[in-house]
C-alpha cells in the first residue's frame, strides 16, 4: 500500500470537491436566506429594492475578494480592474452589439475571468507583496488605457442603453442571484476538500506542494473564480449606474470598499464579509455618501485600527466572545435543567 502511494505522481489524491457536512448545512441556510431576501423584496417598497440591489452587489464584491485574499492568501488591490472590464463589456455588448442584459452580464463575467487568468500568469509566480502591487498596477494601467482609448470614448465614458436596463424588481433579483453565487462559491470553497487544500496553501505553500497539492493550479482556479464573481458584481453596478467613466469604474475605491468590508467582518470566514458589507454599506457608504473625503478617512482609519487591534475582524471576535459568555453560563444552565421538573 505504502509503495503504491509513494510511487504515485504528485497531484490531487482525492477528488477535490466533496462538500463537507458543514458545507451542505451552510448551503441549505443560504437557500433559506435567499428565499427570505426574495420575500423581503416582494413586500418591501422601491427603497428596499434599490438599497438591496446595491448591497447585494457589495456582498458579492466583498465575498469575491475574500475568496482570493482570505482563503488563498493572495491580497489583491485590483478589484477595480475586474469591475471596470466587466462593466465596459456589459455596456459595449449592449450598445454596439444590441445584446440584452443577460448575455451582456455573462460576457462581462467571462471577460473578467479571462483577465484574471491573463494576470495570473505573471502574478501567481510571485510572493504576496508583489501580487498586491501587481494587481494595483494592472488597475492603474487599465484606467490609463481606457482614459486614452477612443474606441471606448476615452474619459467621456460609456452608457448602457436605458431602455434595455431591467426594472427595479428584476435588478433586485439579479443582485440577489449574484450575491448568492458569490456566497455559495465561498461556502463550497470553505467546507470542502478543495478548501482544506487551499488553507494549506495559504498557511505554507511549500509544505502543501510537498503533500502533493497542485499549488499554482489551485491558485489559478481561485483567482479566476474571484475575478468572475467581481465581474458579475461589476455588471450589476454597470446596470444600476447606467453611465460611467473609466476613472469611476477602474477606481481604487472598489478595492478600498471590498477590503474594508472583508477586514472589518473577518477575512477568511464566510459570514464575516457579509456582516462587513452590511455594516460598511449602512454605516459608512450611505451615511457619508455626500462626504467622499470623510468616508475615505474613516475607511483608511478603520483598516488601521482593525488590523492593529482586532486582526481577525469583528465577526470571529463576536463569535468568540459569545462562546465565552455561554461557557461561563453553561454550568448554571445545566443545574437549572437538572432541578427543574421534566417537561411534559
Amino acid at each position: 500500500m505504502a509503495t503504491t502511494a509513494l510511487s504515485r505522481a504528485p497531484g490531487p489524491v482525492a477528488p477535490a470537491l466533496p462538500l463537507h457536512r458543514r458545507g451542505v448545512a451552510a448551503l441549505g441556510a443560504l437557500v433559506v436566506a435567499g428565499a427570505a431576501c426574495l420575500a423581503l423584496g416582494d413586500v418591501g417598497g422601491a427603497g428596499v429594492l434599490s438599497l438591496g440591489t446595491t448591497l447585494f452587489a457589495y456582498v458579492a464584491l466583498a465575498q469575491a475578494w475574500n475568496i482570493l485574499g482570505g482563503f488563498s492568501g493572495q491580497m489583491s488591490l485590483g478589484v477595480g480592474a475586474f469591475v471596470g472590464t466587466s462593466a465596459y463589456t456589459v455596456a459595449l455588448t449592449m450598445t454596439r452589439l444590441g445584446w440584452s442584459w443577460l448575455p451582456g452580464m455573462v460576457a462581462g463575467m467571462v471577460v473578467a475571468g479571462a483577465l484574471s487568468a491573463l494576470l495570473a500568469f505573471p502574478l501567481l509566480r510571485l510572493k504576496g507583496d508583489y501580487f498586491a502591487v501587481g494587481t494595483l498596477a494592472a488597475t492603474m494601467a487599465l484606467d490609463a488605457w481606457f482614459d486614452n482609448w477612443s474606441f471606448v470614448n476615452k474619459s467621456m465614458g460609456v452608457s448602457v442603453p436605458i431602455q434595455a436596463v431591467p426594472g427595479q424588481t428584476e435588478m433586485y433579483v439579479i443582485g440577489l442571484v449574484v450575491a448568492l453565487l458569490a456566497v455559495g462559491s465561498a461556502i463550497v470553497m470553505r467546507w470542502s476538500t478543495f478548501g482544506v487544500r487551499l488553507l494549506a496553501i495559504r498557511e505554507d505553500d511549500l509544505a502543501a506542494r510537498l503533500m502533493g497539492v497542485n499549488v499554482s493550479g489551485y491558485r489559478l482556479v481561485v483567482m479566476v473564480v474571484s475575478g468572475m464573481l467581481i465581474g458579475l458584481a461589476g455588471g450589476v453596478f454597470a446596470l444600476s449606474l447606467v453611465s460611467f467613466v473609466p476613472d469611476g469604474m477602474f477606481a481604487m475605491s472598489w478595492t478600498i470598499e471590498a477590503l474594508v468590508m472583508v477586514v472589518i467582518g473577518g477575512m477568511g470566514t464566510v459570514i464575516g464579509p457579509i456582516v462587513g458589507a452590511v455594516a460598511v454599506y449602512y454605516g459608512i457608504t450611505t451615511e457619508l455618501a455626500n462626504f467622499p473625503t470623510l468616508s475615505l478617512f474613516f475607511e483608511g482609519g478603520l483598516l488601521l485600527v482593525i488590523v492593529r487591534f482586532v486582526p481577525g475582524g469583528l465577526w470571529p471576535f463576536v463569535v468568540r466572545s459569545a462562546r465565552r459568555l455561554l461557557e461561563r453560563r453553561g454550568p448554571a444552565i445545566t443545574t437549572a435543567r437538572a432541578t427543574s421538573p421534566p417537561s411534559p
Binding site: 504576496g128 477590503l259 483608511g300 488601521l304 486582526p311
Partner: peptide, 18 residues
C-alpha cells in the same frame, strides 16, 4: 505579511483623505 499590506494600504487611504 497580510497585516502589513492591509495596514500600509489603510495608511495610504487615510493619508490621501487627510
Amino acid at each position: 505579511p497580510e497585516a502589513g499590506i492591509v495596514g500600509t494600504f489603510g495608511l495610504a487611504v487615510l493619508g490621501e483623505a487627510a
